Amino acid sequence: MAALILPELAEKIVKEVRKLIGEDIIVVNTEGDIIASTDMERVGTFHEGALLTAQKKRKLIITEEDQLKLAGVKAGINFPIFFQHDVIGVLGITGDPNKVTPFGEIIRKMTELLISENYYAEQHDWHTRAIESFVMDWVQSKEWDDPFINRAKLLAIDLKAKRTVVIIEFLGLNSPLSRDSWSSIFNRFQENTQEVVARTGNERMVLLINSSKGPTRASIEKRLMKFFLFLFNNFGIQAVAGVGQAAESFEISHSYRQAERSLKIAKVNGTITFDENLTLEMISEEINPKTKADFVIRTIGPLLKEVELLETLKELFKQNHSLKNTAKKLHIHINTLHYRLKKVEELTHLNANNIQDLVNLYLGILFLDEQTKIRK
């Protein structure tokens, strides 16, 4: 258990305790070595009083006379730090014992709470990383050997259930989410132990829904919308999702690939996209990147430096070619929208009111977004 108090945690304890009391603080391991202190010169030195405290498992008051008898000590009080009934270290407070003793028990309890919180947070992090690693192996068609099956049992994951893969991506994050934020997000799915949730990087998470009893598309969509509302209200995060089709667990990679291509469309449309609705987009998956890049140049190439026009087209497609809704969403007058679309036609020779031209514009935007994502 001694390894629970690492120097980083010991330093955190010293900082937190110092906020409550203006005396020098030390944290000592069970061998009597000072691993953190408000007096940096004491770090790494031996403290005989702390060693005795750890061995006897009770507090030790150190007087000025004791300073002459015990190595490395100063007048004050030492408290054993307990975790799960074991002594894992010692907290020392320097000063007049009569003054610092009344604070001692409260500070010791606070220290033990800090250690306990850190321990369970690390356990949560380990479990989260283990789930993430397992899910990535799972969806990438890793062979189901004995170690793989044992990992599933250890993580309480049912490999017999059919699954529907959902990939959720957070949009426009300015900074990485904190551990507490991720914990809060994952807690949204803790009630249903039949589901598997994993993060993939700081901007994505994967949800593997148990589909053995066949959740309806409507129920999945409703749940995702509620989750998106939670994200926005609590963290100001906007999100989109791609949803694959239900598959047997040993074929989960198929559902994952479907969710990935659905997510590409969802990022263009700014919504939730189900693979079962894809048609033209399925074909685009088979087109090689070089051909897509050439297509972008031949269609919307003249718009690549016209950010305003590109955003207008993207919004037009999001609004299903509704000019009224597009203008409203962009906060512009309908005449301004007509002007921009006229400008698009002048530059590209593609008319958004012509069905063939419209398809070319749509594919150009779709392929451009794919390229932008790859560069990122």
Rank of each mutant, 00 (worst) to 15 (best):
W144C: 07
F170M: 10
L171Y: 06
G236H: 13
V243E: 04
N174L: 12
T216F: 00
F148C: 08
F227N: 01
A152H: 05
A239N: 08
A239W: 02
A152W: 04
E122W: 06
V165L: 07
F170S: 01
N234A: 15
A152M: 12
A239P: 02
I185Q: 00
I185T: 04
V135H: 03
E169I: 04
S249W: 08
I237R: 02
I131E: 06
L154F: 10
E203C: 05
Y120E: 13
N210W: 02
I167Q: 05
L207C: 01
E132P: 05
E203D: 14
E143H: 05
V206P: 02
K142V: 09
L173V: 01
K222A: 14
D146A: 10
S178I: 11
I237N: 02
Q123M: 11
N187K: 11
I252R: 00
Q190S: 15
W126K: 10
E191H: 10
W182V: 08
K222H: 09
I167T: 12
E221L: 03
A246L: 03
L208P: 02
S219F: 05
D146C: 02
A218R: 09
F189T: 05
S253G: 07
A130R: 10
Q123L: 15
D180K: 13
E221F: 01
E169N: 07
K153H: 14
V206M: 13
A247L: 01
W182S: 00
W138H: 03
S178Y: 08
I149Y: 11
N192K: 15
E132C: 07
P147G: 04
N174G: 12
E132L: 09
F230V: 11
